[in-house]
């Protein structure tokens, strides 16, 4: 064991034996934004054996305020986040195997990546992907750690198949219109706080200190000085379609996925959410305006100009993204607005 991890092996619950275990593990990090770059850095510094990181976006100037792996040059060069993350992680350590994938974390892609993975760290910005992670976690018996934040508020929960309830037991349905960092803002310390919780849980799991895993959903607000642990053990639902006795893994089924289609000859992608929504335009419009976007609307649709593209949003959640033929880019724009 190298001197490098001496302060971590000196921590009694890990020790040299725990460090060997961490060293033998493979972690899949879904998303390389704020949470993803924080989680990836901590896993790399802690000496995990292998990291796989998937992300579909590129580094923008507005990311630099909170996404810790990225430097100014990455934003100037519009580097894909997964590639920029890999570059910095390799400067930090040569001892960890880093595999970065520039692409959309679709359920199919995640199933493929899950092979041989010991832990999935959620670092996404939307519940559609989280519900797919949740089903994959159950299907392949891989623990995952939920993390999310907006403003000064954040939360995390550890899901261990066979032991804890799953996200589908808890939420039953995907929350509609969660606040996102693009609509509610975000301060960097809230990111760090979620990463601290996710990474601590990850070290417990990787070092096989199962008895120390937090059996609660933790929520906190650093500005309002709030912190609470909500116990969830009673929530486990035998009838849950993701983790119960008769499972269908609903979020791996095509009918429950977001549909995106390139509209031929129009340089436009249509996005259709898995279930019809009922959108309140005024709230979204106001948030987007305060962010500096050009927003126009009428009772039937909302039109938003953003970075060369135009998003037209209908009341039922359907949207047209004009100015692109790239499905992943269009989905990314949609989920940044809609959560």
């Amino acid at each position: 064991m190298s001197e490098r991890y001496s302060r971590q092996t000196l921590f009694p619950p890990i020790g040299k034996e725990g460090q060997e275990k961490i060293r033998s593990k493979h972690v899949l990090i879904v998303g390389a934004g704020a949470l993803g770059s924080g989680n990836a850095e901590l896993m790399a510094r802690s000496g995990a054996g292998k990291l796989t990181i998937i992300d579909r976006d590129y580094v923008e100037e507005s990311n630099l305020q909170r996404q810790q792996l990225f430097a100014e040059s990455d934003a100037l060069e519009k580097m894909p986040k997964a590639a920029a993350a890999e570059k910095r992680l390799k400067q930090i350590t040569s001892e960890v195997e880093i595999r970065s994938i520039i692409g959309d974390a679709t359920p199919e892609k995640l199933e493929e990546l899950a092979e041989g993975v010991d832990l999935i760290l959620d670092s996404t910005d939307n519940f559609e992907t989280r519900m797919a992670i949740n089903d994959i976690s159950q299907k392949f018996d891989i623990p995952w750690i939920y993390g999310a934040c907006v403003g000064s508020f954040g939360m995390s929960m550890t899901i261990i198949p066979g032991k804890t309830p799953c996200m589908n037991c808890l939420l039953k349905k995907i929350p509609i219109q969660g606040m996102t960092c693009d609509t509610g803002g975000i301060i960097a310390p809230a990111v760090q706080m979620v990463v601290a919780h996710q990474a601590a849980e990850a070290l417990k799991i990787l070092s096989e200190n199962w008895e120390s895993v937090r059996n609660a959903m933790v929520s906190f607000d650093l500005w309002r000085n709030q912190y609470t642990n909500m116990k969830v053990s009673k929530v486990k639902d035998e009838g849950c379609l993701s983790c119960g006795k008769e499972r269908t893994y609903p979020y791996l089924q095509p009918e429950n996925m977001m549909k995106s289609t390139v509209l031929c000859g129009r340089d436009t992608v249509q996005i259709r959410p898995p279930k019809e929504l009922e959108i309140e335009y005024t709230e979204i419009a106001q948030q987007l305006k305060s962010l500096g976007y050009q927003v126009k609307g009428n009772p039937y649709l909302l039109s938003v100009e953003m970075e060369g593209q135009r998003l037209v949003l209908f009341k039922d959640g359907r949207a047209l993204i004009h100015g692109t033929k790239d499905l992943a880019q269009a989905k990314s724009i949609y989920q940044r607005i809609m959560g």
Partner: peptide, 10 residues
């Protein structure tokens, strides 16, 4: 009783 909104950002 406590009310806690689920959050999606990240």
């Amino acid at each position: 009783v406590a009310f806690i909104p689920p959050v999606s950002g990240g």
